[in-house]
Design a protein around this nucleic acid. Structure first.
Lengths: 332, 332
DNA sequence: GAGATTTGCGAAATCGGTTACCCAACGATA
DNA sequence: TATCGTTGGGTAACCGATTTCGCAAATCTC
């Protein structure tokens, strides 16, 4: 079917070895210019395309990188979308193709990819052993510098959000954590950041947890509704993500209150959803696009240097202030 | 590094051929049960994983399918996201991995994928020739049945939206087409559908075109703003997509008018954005998830049967009515 | 003009599978 | 006992590249 180097070799009366050398621009081989041009011309004319599968078999490099997330919904959701948008062109510019999967095993198995970007960690206990010997990079919201991990500090991100609200004069600030399972001594960075910021300011700790549910908007709506029914002097909400925040805004409006005049709402991740809500949602910006770009870059160098471990990077979060936050106004 | 069939063969004192036969469950080979079990046990014990690259080289099948869209932004945007979410698990269930790319050439080249799902057509003139001999399936908003194409009818979708508004009693309905380049006799289905529906009802044809801009929200906002400045008795807007619709809602609100009391707004594609807007956006639902699932299915059978052309499918659109549409109210 | 070097390029192994073809051993049949 | 079919499994070619090794011819050196 396809044209092979043997076809070219035959047509120019040379061996496949020489054709390969020319087409791979091997500088160590001594190929006279005339020969070089003959081969290149023949290849062009015959429409030669190297069979990448065959090449991968000999070189051991597929030039595929895998991107993994626990669920495809997560991967294509607005948060990770911002990253994929950047990752694929970046990978492409380095000569790699991108394989997406929510099944780690199929990604790892069979030397199909040279390296993997992990966006979330599966609960599968074989997780660690499946990754043994693979080149990978994590993109996570880890707290500190960690090998092979491009991260940002969610403790700090949450603190920025709360700090901003405190600065506006808010006292009763609720942490809307939605579907996180409550634990007394959680390691969850956003929760830690929230608690630290509130406690340092000496304010009352108001947290809102929920059960896991598929519809996060609904989740945010219900939690906020219950909250407004119970306590009625809340002036600000910081949500774990933009979905919850937007659900909360809906509940606040349904309760006859105004955002941001009565209650300020801050989201998290600064996804495209912030542009749709009314009012436009203030949100903590996480540098996931930059993280993705760096991840591809680091992964590519790790692959080509045969390195398995490399230094991590911690990026900065920032607060994107829009219209859903304002100084508190006494409602009573 | 990895365990090969030769390693297994050596350990059980058989040839690699026999090992291959056992592991591929070849029914035409006559392998006694004892031998079979010996091989399987050895493979398990040694942690054997077939090298898929090598397998692909001999069989000519990579079990990769490519998904192409013109830009990665398009691919990860909320519309196609709904599809990818379904496509990857479906592909995986049929034994395929998914390679995403916004570079058709890198997807097509080098026998890296067995088939391709095309979500949009690039302007590259080599488009047609690049696809020659490849197994592919298009997921498009084509009007009619078309080979290798899973589609839905946007003419009809637009007619449903306009018909619904007419039914509510609207007269002055604007088609907000945003960045589509205006042509006198356009083939663009949404425009055709809009015109047909309006003209059949004998109403005035009001269309709104714009120039291509990266920020579609802004696009919708500006177009709607200009529209409200010019004519002031518009009671309904049907947008080309949800972005434009949400931008338009913003402009309507900024003009001191209410959605849907003063102006009804209908979006298109029924993306997740409809859940964020206020009021919740009525939108034409396009069956892109179903289309994706069918596309994978058809592609897989086309691949395994070596067929290049197969019958297309046309799916139904529907209107998802939410809170941004209502009967018109006289404003003057 | 002999030896040393360089130049140009081919032969063959290799990557890890799959598969067509073939053959020895065995039991059944005549 | 000769023939034949079946069973079990090995040999080797093949997929399409890359790369090491090495050799003949050309060129240079003295």
């Amino acid at each position: 079917m396809g044209v092979t180097i043997y076809d070219i070799a035959k047509s120019v009366n040379l061996s496949a070895a020489t054709v390969s050398r020319v087409l791979n621009k091997r500088t160590d081989a001594r190929i006279p210019e005339v020969t070089r041009l003959r081969v290149i011309e023949a290849a062009r004319e015959m429409g030669y395309r190297p069979n990448l599968v065959a090449r991968a078999l000999t070189t051991g490099r597929t030039f595929n990188i895998g991107v993994f997330a626990c669920s495809m919904q997560e991967m294509t959701g607005p948060h990770f979308a911002r990253m994929l948008e950047v990752v694929e062109p970046k990978a492409h510019s380095l000569g790699y193709r991108v394989v997406v999967s929510s099944e780690l095993e199929s990604l790892v198995e069979g030397r199909q990819v040279d390296g993997i970007i992990l966006l979330s960690a599966p609960s599968d206990p074989r997780f660690g052993s499946m990754l043994r010997g693979k080149t990978c990079v994590f993109v996570r919201n880890l707290i500190r510098d960690f090998p092979n991990c491009i991260s940002w500090n969610d403790i700090e991100g949450m603190q920025k959000a709360v700090g901003y609200l405190l600065g506006l004069g808010h006292k009763k600030i609720v942490g809307l954590f939605g579907d996180i399972v409550p634990e007394p001594h959680t390691q969850y960075p956003k929760v830690i950041g929230f608690r630290q910021a509130i406690e340092e300011a000496g304010e009352e700790l108001l947290e809102c947890w929920g059960t896991r549910s598929p519809d996060q908007f609904e989740n945010g709506y219900r939690l906020m509704k219950d909250l407004l029914d119970g306590t009625d002097d809340i002036t600000a909400v910081v949500a774990r993500n933009d979905y919850l925040a937007i659900g909360a805004i809906r509940a606040i409006r349904d309760a006859g209150l105004s955002v941001p005049d009565d209650v300020s709402v801050i989201g998290y991740n600064d996804t495209i959803l912030t542009q749709c809500s009314y009012p436009l949602l203030t949100s903590v910006h996480t540098p996931i696009a930059e993280a993705g770009e760096i991840a591809v870059d680091r992964l590519a160098t790790a692959i080509s240097h045969g390195v398995e471990e490399f230094a991590g990077v911690v990026l900065q979060t920032s607060l994107t202030i829009r219209d859903s936050s304002a100084p508190p106004r006494k409602r009573f």
